[in-house]
Amino acid sequence: MAVLNNKKSKVSDEVPTSSMADIAFLLLIFFLVTTVFPKDKGLAIVLPEESETVEVNQKNILHIVIQPSGVVEVRRGESQQVQTVSPREIEGIWRQDVASNPNLIAGVKTHPDTPYKFMIDVLDALQTAGADKISLQLLEG
């Protein structure tokens, strides 16, 4: 049985290093592929140019007034009738009104003390409903 001990093993006694490169390259490619650069996102609007004022027929305006409590008052064109709604209901109102008047413009007037998020809620509802003619103003008086 001593013969067995004398026989030189054909298996290398070194740690196989050649596959290390493959592992490292796999890691490299993994990180290259999975790295996601945080993309900026939000609600895009186009501001008017300075001195750009357009006269609009009153009946083409949907007045939306946002109060500090988050309550939204909707007034259509020349009528004095005020409808009190929540920001989410704006979407349905816009869809309904724009169907009867394609030239409709949303005039969003926000009270100076209104938290920003309520204005975003209204803007969100309008953009979800597909509105593109939106005027953002500060409620005066």
Binding site: K39, D40, K41, G42, L43, A44, Y116, K117, I120, D121, L123, D124, Q127, T128
Partner: peptide, 9 residues
């Protein structure tokens, strides 16, 4: 703030 109509720039 959160919005449903959020889109990528």
């Amino acid at each position: 703030p959160q919005a449903e109509a959020t889109e990528k720039i």
